[in-house]
Structures are given as C-alpha cells and as structure tokens.
Amino acid sequence: MADEKQHASTTAKGELNRRAFFAKIGLGSLGIAAVGTAGFAYQFLSPNVLYEPSPIVNLGKPEDFAVDSVTMDPNAGIYLVHTSEGYFALSAVCTHLGCLTAWNQELGMIKCPCHGSEFTRTGVKIEGPAPKPLPWLRTWVSDEGDLMVDRSTDIHPLQYLRI
C-alpha cells in the first residue's frame, strides 16, 4: 500500500493533469489581475495635481528684519532669523509630528505646543521627542531685492545668507 501511494504521488508530481493545469492558469491570471489592480489603485489614489500653496514665499525687504530678531511667518510656517552672521530661514513645523512651533522671546527658544519639544533659534533640539533639528531652508535675494525662501528645499545648517 505504501508503494502504491508513493507511485501515485510521483505521477501527480511528474505530470500535470487537466484540472490542475486549468486551476493554475486561473489562479495565475487572478494573481496578475490583483497586482495590476493594486498598481491602478495606487495611481488612482495619489492625486496628480495638488491645490496647495507654492513652496516659494516672498518675505519682503531684508531691511525689515532687525538684527538679532526672530520673525515668524505663520502662513508659510517658517522663521526668518537675522543674526550678526547673516540671515537664515528655519522651518517652523516641528520635526516630531508636524505641529506648528512658536518662538518664545523671554526664554529665547522655539517651543512645540504638542509634545513639548524645544529648539534653539538655529534649530538645534534642546529637549523633547523631536527626532531631528528644525531644517534650514534655501534662502536667496530675488532680482527685486526681496528675501525669498524655498520651503521644499532643505540646506545644511549654518549657511548664513549675508547681504
């Protein structure tokens, strides 16, 4: 009996009968269709056009920012800092979970209201759960002499813009 069983299984392994063949074709095509559907769903679900504000903002004349000042633009979600070394722009969006931080003038630091992260005005984390410092953003002066900030481009810290 053991021999018979073994024999039957070898033939089943060796040659494909019609039923198994069609079952495999059916399941295979279903699998291909499922992968295609997943790809299609992914494409459909990611919008191609976003009605979001432009990442480039115009902050006006550099002279409007006094030396040793931190100015927040809440609409753009950035800080413009003017130190003796020069200008730089800092993202105001907390690197932890995206809350908007606020500049605390008395303590001289940036604080996040959500989970208590604290940063210096150069973006370095002092305390709290934030995993990264606040990123520095690309800043330049336009042809009209306005300060421009690109919120979508991070630069390495301590690259001051001197005017």
Partner: peptide
C-alpha cells in the same frame, strides 16, 4: 500622502 491625498491636511 495616500491617506491625506496631499502633503497636508486639506480638502482632499
């Protein structure tokens, strides 16, 4: 991005 249909919480 897929969950929000964008980069921020918005109409999408």
């Amino acid at each position: 991005f897929l969950m929000l249909g964008g980069n921020q919480v918005n109409a999408n």
